[in-house]
Simulated scan of single mutants.
Amino acid sequence: MRPRPHPVFGKLGPMPAASLRAMVGYGLNEAEIGRYFGVTPSSVRRLKRSLGICDSAAE
């Protein structure tokens, strides 16, 4: 049995990793991204970590 994806992934559209990378690339922080997608900043932080997405300033 495969694990079910986290429900937050559905809020980020059909390509959640690309959506999140784009928002980070635009310079938005977790609170701003969370507000845009209707999720908590901590959910955004966890998704970034699980997808291996770093803040653009750190790259």
Rank of each mutant, 00 (worst) to 15 (best):
R45K: 12
A18Q: 15
S56P: 00
V44N: 04
P5E: 12
F9S: 14
R46Q: 14
S56T: 14
G34V: 09
R2M: 02
V39T: 10
E30P: 00
R46D: 11
A17V: 15
F9D: 15
D55K: 08
F37M: 11
A57C: 11
G38P: 09
V44L: 04
P5I: 05
M23Q: 15
K11I: 01
K11H: 06
I33V: 14
I33K: 08
P14H: 01
L20C: 07
L51W: 06
H6N: 14
L28G: 02
R2F: 01
A18S: 14
F37V: 09
S50W: 01
R45F: 06
M15P: 00
T40M: 00
G34H: 07
S19Q: 12
P5S: 12
E59F: 07
L47F: 02
S19H: 08
M15G: 07
R49H: 12
R2H: 01
N29L: 01
S50V: 04
L20T: 05
C54N: 12
F9H: 15
P14T: 03
L47V: 02
P7C: 05
G52C: 10
E30H: 08
D55R: 11
R49V: 02
L51M: 15
E59G: 13
R46V: 13
R2T: 02
R45M: 04
L28Q: 14
V8N: 09
V24Y: 07
R49M: 11
G10E: 12
E32C: 01
P14S: 07
E32Q: 15
V44M: 05
P7W: 11
F37Y: 15
R21N: 04
L51S: 03
V8P: 01
R4W: 04
I53V: 15
R46H: 10
N29W: 01
P3E: 10
P3G: 01
M15L: 13
E59Y: 07
P7M: 06
E30N: 11
V8W: 01
V39A: 11
S56D: 12
L20F: 08
S43G: 06
V24S: 09
R2A: 10
M15Y: 13
Y36D: 04
A17H: 10
G13P: 04
P16I: 02
A18I: 15
G10K: 07
G13M: 08
P14Q: 04
R21K: 13
G52H: 08
K48G: 05
R4P: 00
F9G: 02
